[in-house]
Design a protein around this nucleic acid. Structure first.
Lengths: 205, 205
DNA sequence: GTCTATAAGCAGATAGAC
DNA sequence: GTCTATCTGCTTATAGAC
């Protein structure tokens, strides 16, 4: 059982370490802003300002410009977010306890960060699903990896043919719950999602 | 049992009736573009072009500009979307059949429209959750109405204290499934969501 | 390598001709 | 009421000084 994590935000969203280089600060600022304001809603000047970096440095470190920054963010925070969820699940021995605990923990975190940070990929994914094929593909890769990793986790507790639907349910409930909770500024959907996933898991064992 | 609907898109997204006035054409174009590209990703000039309307007409009919157009869209397509889901559910007598049927139908529709149109409110809600308090509130009102209406529907089939969690699960699974399906261009998450909700409903009866 | 200045274009919004 | 032209400011991106 791992120690309780102080924050269940992907490392890229927690702010750069003190004394970090320009490139690192730009990546962190981009991740935060893209996750909160979406792709079109985030300006490169905003990123430079928040990173305390000169505007030109963005193109020095990311010659591909906005798209390169966004793809780096999706492909980095995606795996980080999955790792945090799995770490949360492993804080309890019983799997039904684990899912309830993970969602409750997410609810507390969301309130603590002022309903600003939910899933780091979802807003970007919806923004680009119909407008930017490269970024949509990056987000699709992230989701596919989540389903694969989650199925492995659930396979430890239920029959393999049920693990995939349970994993999909978990991902969809997480995403839907963050959407509702952030929009209504109420953590209740996250706790309700935990109860529902626990019921599904209990019925599948 | 109602006749099968040709399309389960909210009326505002299906295109304006032939010969519709300028105001109507603007509303339909705005709804389509906002739903697909999000708030910041949609330009008023784009809306005017798609509506075949002069740019100035937007401000003639919507003096509040972009925000007024977006709020009108959220508050109109939200109830339309819920009405379509409820109509889909009422196409089957048995509630477990109904939820499977509704999700399967949504999967077929999503493929038919090229993965472009999922939930008309979700992209907007995530875009504005942290940047535009008025629009966030509008989306929150929509979600609250969905939960209320859905709870009434489920209360016909399960104990009242379980209807709310089931409704939240349905909304979250719909939203999560559209996110995954649109991003990965695969309808499977929607069908999986239907199976999971059916299992939850069966366990709650 | 770090940073400034500027280019070229598009955004939302408005004024006013017809 | 319908439509055009334009204003101001912000966007991404680049060129080039230091």
């Amino acid at each position: 059982m791992a120690a309780a994590t102080p924050s269940n935000l992907p490392p890229l969203l927690t702010g750069p370490p003190a004394g970090a280089g320009t490139r690192t600060r730009i990546r962190h600022a981009a991740a935060r802003l893209f996750a909160r304001r979406g792709y079109a809603g985030t300006g490169l000047k905003q990123i430079a300002t928040e990173a305390a970096a000169p505007f030109g440095s963005i193109y020095h470190f990311f010659p591909g410009g906005k798209d390169a920054l966004a793809e780096d963010m999706i492909r980095t925070t995606g795996p980080q977010f999955m790792a945090l969820v799995l770490a949360l699940l492993d804080e309890r021995d019983d799997p039904v306890d684990a899912v309830v605990h993970a969602f409750d923990s997410a609810a507390r975190d969301l309130v603590a960060n002022g309903y600003a940070d939910g899933c780091p990929v979802a807003t970007m994914a919806l923004d680009v699903a119909d407008t930017n094929e490269a970024l949509r593909g990056a987000a699709a890769d992230v989701f596919a990896a989540w389903v694969e990793g989650g199925t492995a986790w659930f396979s430890r507790h239920v029959a393999p043919d049920r693990a995939r639907d349970l994993t999909l349910a978990m991902v969809m409930l997480v995403e839907g719950a963050f959407l509702l909770a952030r929009t209504t500024r109420d953590p209740e959907p996250l706790r309700s999602a935990g109860r529902s996933l626990a019921a599904l898991l209990a019925a599948a064992r």
